[in-house]
C-alpha cells in the first residue's frame, strides 16, 4: 500500500519542439503514516512529481501505484477519479480554488463530487473546519471576503473534508506571515499525529523540513538525487553544496560557530538546547585543557 513509483518518466509538451523531460526514471516508495518532505530547486520536477500522486498527471512511461489503484504510463487509465478522494492534493495558493457563495458549500464541493450525501457532507465540512482551526461561524460567510490566511485554511478544509488518507501539500506556507506559517505547519503536524494522515510536503523552508519531516526526498533536474533521513542530509555538507540546497537555521548556526571558534560539532544537533550543551562540552573541555 501507499504510493509507489516504478521507472516513471514524464515528458512535457510531448511531440513538440519544446519537449522536455520533467521526471526521469523515478523509483519511489511511500508508505502510509509518514511525514515526508520533497525539496529541490524551481523546475526540478517537484510539482510534476506530486501531481502524479493523485493521477492529475499520468506518467509517459512507467507505473504509479496509488493505494490499490495502478496507473500505467502511456495508457488510458479508467476510474482514476476515486484515487483523488484518498490522496488529497493541496496546490500552491489553494485560495484561488474557492468559488462557492459560502464557506460551507465550498468545503462540501469535494465530498459531494465523490458521492457523499448532502447531510454527511455538511457534517464533514464542520469537522474539517475544526481541523484547520476556524470557528464554526465561518460556515455561512463568503469565502471571498476572508483574509488570505483564512482563505487558505478554508481551501485546505475543502480537501480535508474528502477525508483523504494521504495529504500532499505544495508550498502550503508560501505568502503567509511567519506566525501564520508556524500555525499552518503545526496544523499539518497535528493531522499527522492525531488523524494518522500521511503528509507529503513540498517546501523551500528548511526549518520546517528539519522540524517535522523524518524523511526527505531531493529532486534535481527531474531525478531523485537523495532519499533518506532528514538529518543525514543536513549533516552531509557535500550534498547540500552540490545541489545548492538551503540549510535549517540551526545547522547554519552550527557551521558559523565551527568556523568562528575552530571547533567541530555534530551537524545533526536539532535543538537550541542540545546545541548549548554540545557547546558547553566542546568549550568546557577546551577550558579544562588550558
Amino acid at each position: 500500500m501507499g504510493i509507489q513509483f516504478e521507472k516513471v518518466n514524464y515528458l512535457y509538451a510531448r511531440g513538440t519542439s519544446q519537449e522536455k523531460a520533467a521526471l526521469i526514471d523515478i523509483d519511489l516508495a511511500i508508505d502510509l503514516h509518514g511525514f515526508i518532505a520533497i525539496i529541490g530547486h524551481t523546475g526540478s520536477g517537484k510539482s510534476t512529481l506530486i501531481q502524479h500522486m493523485n493521477a492529475i498527471l499520468q506518467p509517459t512511461s512507467g507505473v504509479v501505484r496509488i493505494l490499490d489503484k495502478t496507473i500505467v504510463g502511456g495508457k488510458k487509465n479508467r476510474d482514476i477519479n476515486i484515487v483523488r478522494k484518498r490522496v488529497g492534493l493541496v496546490f500552491q495558493f489553494p485560495e484561488y480554488q474557492l468559488f462557492e457563495e459560502t464557506v460551507e458549500k465550498d468545503i462540501m464541493f469535494g465530498p459531494l463530487n465523490f458521492g457523499v450525501s448532502k447531510e454527511d457532507a455538511a457534517l464533514k465540512a464542520r469537522e474539517a473546519l475544526k481541523w484547520v482551526g476556524l470557528e464554526q461561524d465561518f460556515l455561512s460567510r463568503s469565502p471571498l471576503n476572508l483574509s488570505g490566511g483564512q482563505m487558505r485554511r478554508v481551501a485546505i478544509a475543502g480537501i480535508l473534508a474528502m477525508e483523504p488518507d494521504v495529504l500532499v501539500l505544495d508550498e502550503p506556507t508560501a505568502g503567509l506571515d511567519p506566525q501564520g506559517q508556524k500555525e499552518m505547519m503545526e496544523m499539518f503536524y497535528n493531522l499527522y499525529v492525531n488523524q494518522h494522515k500521511t503528509i507529503i510536503l513540498v517546501t523551500h523552508d528548511m526549518n520546517f523540513v528539519a522540524q517535522y519531516a523524518k524523511r526527505i526526498i531531493v529532486l534535481n533536474d527531474g531525478r531523485i538525487v537523495y532519499d533518506g533521513d532528514t538529518w543525514d542530509l543536513f549533516a552531509n555538507y557535500e550534498l547540500i553544496k552540490k545541489y545548492h540546497l538551503d540549510l535549517p537555521d540551526i545547522t547554519k548556526l552550527i557551521i558559523d560557530i565551527e568556523n568562528k571558534l575552530g571547533i567541530k560539532l555534530d551537524h545533526k544537533i536539532n535543538t537550541v538546547e542540545n546545541l548549548a550543551q554540545a557547546l558547553v562540552q566542546a568549550l568546557g573541555g577546551a577550558n579544562h585543557a588550558r
Binding site: 496546490f91 469535494g110 474528502m162
Partner: peptide, 27 residues
C-alpha cells in the same frame, strides 16, 4: 492550475450529467 485544483477535489469535467457539468464549469 484551477482546472487541476478542482479535478483534485473530484470535479470531473468530462463526464456527468448537465447539472453536474454546470456546477463544475462554475467552479
Amino acid at each position: 492550475k484551477v482546472l487541476k485544483a478542482q479535478t483534485s477535489r473530484g470535479a470531473d469535467f468530462t463526464e456527468g450529467n448537465i447539472k453536474d457539468k454546470v456546477i463544475q464549469i462554475i467552479s
